[in-house]
Amino acid sequence: MAGGHGLALKRPSAIPGFGLALGFTLTYLSLIVLIPLAALMFKTASLGFSGFWEIVTAPRTLAALRVSFVISFIAASINVVFGVIVAWVLIRYRFPGRRLLDAFVDLPFALPTAVAGIALTAIYARNGWLGALLDPFGIKIAYTPWGIGVALVFIGLPFVVRTVQPVLEDFEREIEEAAASLGASRRQTVFRVMLPALMPAILTGFALAFARAVGEYGSVIFIAGNIPFVSEIAPLLIVIRLEEFNYAQATAIAAAMLMIAFTVIFLINLIQAWQRRRFAP
């Protein structure tokens, strides 16, 4: 079909409106997303490499980036463990309240982050419900890096659950039966057959949760305590630099964050593409 129309923008079609629809799409996309992001890159480039490097390797910046990425990684890992359990329970078992729980999994998508932030703080502060329980043991959650972790687990949870759920739902019972008939115990079936098969979905969920956690701002700043070098996340540092009208520093940190985040997501996509090529049905 494409032959003979090599230079045409689209394949001939009876349906009208291509020019208008694509034109509007590209214009809107450019104005809202591409040009503003280009401005960020432009500004970064104007700093020159040494300028950029100097800002990004400043101790406070490095500390903030480390806090953001390390805690996001931990939070996404926690979400993988509990997200898979939650998805498993919601798909595989029947128990009262299951559908309600299932609906609530999306709460972090729907609840404004600032609301989540102050609510988590209220719970984990020293006089909060859980904070008071933990305080006698010397465990402090709110206003420490742990608090950041709690907030990031909260906002990342739905990603893992929602990516694993449909794959688990479509998982062929016969695969499990085949494993059992070959002599595998239930534990062997789950860990050697099922979880490896769910791995691409789990990785996707991890990547989404991680990406979201790295950029998260609203829910974290209330509970973090925001102590430089300890519990100050990179997005907050950007806001601080902006409030100082230090656009250069804000831009450089933002660019560094984007670069690292995109690299991580790209790597995970590579792993996934590799897996999918091999295991595709």
Binding site: T113, G215, Y217, P235, I238
Partner: peptide, 16 residues
């Protein structure tokens, strides 16, 4: 836009 931090989403307009 889903993979860009909200803070950066605001920042780009400040830069413009």
């Amino acid at each position: 836009p889903f993979s860009v931090s909200p803070v950066i989403s605001g920042l780009v307009y400040v830069l413009l």
